[in-house]
Design a protein around this nucleic acid. Sequence first.
DNA 1: TTAACTGTATTATATCACTAATACGGTTTG
DNA 2: CAAACCGTATTAGTGATATAATACAGTTAA
Lengths: 130, 130
Amino acid sequence: MISFEHFQPQDGTPIYQQIILHIKRGIVSGSVMAGDALPSRRVLSTLLGVNPNTIQKAYHLLEEEHLIASHAGAKSYIVIDNETVARIRRQLMETELRGTVRALKQMGLSKEEATTIISSLWEEAPSSQT
Amino acid sequence: MISFEHFQPQDGTPIYQQIILHIKRGIVSGSVMAGDALPSRRVLSTLLGVNPNTIQKAYHLLEEEHLIASHAGAKSYIVIDNETVARIRRQLMETELRGTVRALKQMGLSKEEATTIISSLWEEAPSSQT
DNA sequence: TTAACTGTATTATATCACTAATACGGTTTG
DNA sequence: CAAACCGTATTAGTGATATAATACAGTTAA
C-alpha cells in the first residue's frame, strides 16, 4: 500500500496536483513500485481531510497518464515499466529545477553560491534517506 | 523605469504573484533600486497583455509590504533601504529553495547528484549575467 | 450469499484568480 | 488652463478548485 504518511499539503498549489506529485516522486525514488495498491478514494480523502472528489480527480489524471489502473469495485494499482519510470524522472527534474535555476540567476547568484546554499540546506531539511 | 523586458509569464501561478516575484528578484539582484519608477498600471497591463486590475493587485500588495509608494495621479516608486533588501533576499531564498530541496530528496537524489544537476542546468539557461 | 468495500457519476454550492467595462479625482506637462 | 496621463474604486461575469450530498454498480471476503 502506497504511503501518505509524510505527505503534508501546502496551500498555494491544488491538492490533487500535490497528490500526483507525491506519487510520481515515490516512483522516481523507488518507494512506489509496479503492482503497489493505492489507498481507496474514500480512505485517502479521510486521511488527508479533503473531499473524495479531489482524490478522484488526482487518480483519474494518473490513469489518463497510464501510471495506474482502476477497475470498478476493486482497488487501483500502480502500472509502470522501467521506461515509464525514466520518463517520469526526466519530467520531474525538468519542472522542479528549471524554474529554480532561473530564479536564482535572476537574483544575481553565481553558480558556486547556488550549489553552496543547496548543500547547506540539504543538511537541515528532514528526510527519509540522508 | 523598472524593466519587464525579460518577463515571461508562465501559467500555473497567478500573474500578479509573478509580477511581485519579478520585482523582488530585481531588488535582490540590484537591478531594481530605491527611487526607481514603475510602469503605470495601464501601460504594464498592455505590455503584458493582461487586465489592469491584475497589475493593480500586484502593486497594491507591494505597497502593503512597504516596497513601493503610490500617490493618486503620480507614478509609483520603489521605496526600500538596505535592511529591506536583506529581508527580501532571505524571504526569496527560503521560498525558492526549501521546496526544491525537499522535492529532490523525496526523489531519492544525493546531495552530490543535486549540485551536479544544478551546475549543468546553470550553463544552458538564459541569463543576463553569466 | 450478503455485507462491506470499491470505482464511478451527478448535481449544487462557494471561493479565488482573472477579465471586462467603467467612473472619479489627482498630477504632470505643453 | 487643458489635455493627457496617473492611481483608485466599483460592479459583473467566467473558469478552476474544492466541498457537499448522494446514487449506482462491480469486487471482495467473512
